[in-house]
Design a protein around this nucleic acid. Structure first.
Lengths: 148, 148
DNA sequence: CTTTTTAGTTAAGCGGGCTTAACTTTATGA
DNA sequence: TCATAAAGTTAAGCCCGCTTAACTAAAAAG
């Protein structure tokens, strides 16, 4: 049994990860942004506003590199860089509307692929998939939160 | 019902994609390879041996760029570049043992995270997850194959 | 059997990401 | 309060990926 579930998780991961990584990098390319720049937008989308140092930690680059990347994103109006009211040394980075639109369009594209999948399922299959995924998602979320 | 399943697919995608993309890019970095180089290894891992032109098509870069990237991977012994016996203009790129090891280690790392997840599930939950994922994987595989 | 097309390589040059080093400004602590 | 640490910025310089252009060699087409 434990063998079986591991097997199905692995197959699923191989297919889905490859597919979606390809999708994201193609989308990033189509926007004209480099992967590092695009990844910062994704990070802000996923985790919300943060400071410059969180970016450099998250991507394991120097503060200088983070600052330069952020500068470009500010120039192209995908993010906003404001002074942190609690610490005037620090900055708060967050997506502008333009930035949010860009990411959301990418997310939608990915969703569309999922929708195609769902269309091919019977009602019974849908409910089984739903059940399985809900379980997985919930436990994954718990793990993410407890790990930090 | 269709609403529900879409919802669960989306939540799941948001969490898992973010997590695994972060994992892969950190792993790529830890190997000392650039993302473009690493992606070529992933592609060969996923789809098997192929020619230079398939690489340039897949990543939407020029033949020249593909050739240069491949050259570096050959130099560092992650791939092998041989003449195609059926067409002496063409080359066949494939992973060496060293290249396979590198990718497999990354895959294993990702699997380990999944295993952590599975540990937190009850027997009943495991079987439900297994059932749902098997359905999804199968339909996804069919779609991949029919799309090309 | 020539002509054209296809697969790949090589070199020059551009632009981007990253690092280190030097600097400014603000917060913290002895 | 004065020294030190922390958050960001800026500039110089390196490496890398990518493109275009010029090329070789082999296959396909006429």
């Amino acid at each position: 049994m434990s063998k079986q579930i591991n097997q199905s998780l692995r197959e699923w991961m191989d297919i889905f990860m490859h597919r979606s990584m390809r999708g994201w990098s193609q989308y990033a390319k189509s926007t004209g942004l480099s992967m590092p720049q695009f990844s910062i937008l994704m990070q802000l989308h996923h985790k919300g506003p943060c400071g410059m140092s969180q970016i450099s930690e998250r991507f394991d680059i120097s503060n200088a590199a983070a600052s330069q990347l952020a500068e470009k994103l500010v120039q192209s109006e995908y993010i906003e860089r404001a002074e942190d009211p609690n610490d005037r040394r620090a900055k708060v980075l967050q997506l502008t509307f333009k930035g949010k639109d860009l990411i959301n369009a990418g997310v939608e594209e990915r969703y569309r692929w999922l929708d195609e999948l769902v269309k091919k399922l019977s009602a019974d299959e849908k409910s089984k998939v739903h059940e399985g995924l809900s379980i997985l998602t919930e436990v994954a979320r718990k793990m993410e939160n407890s790990n930090q």
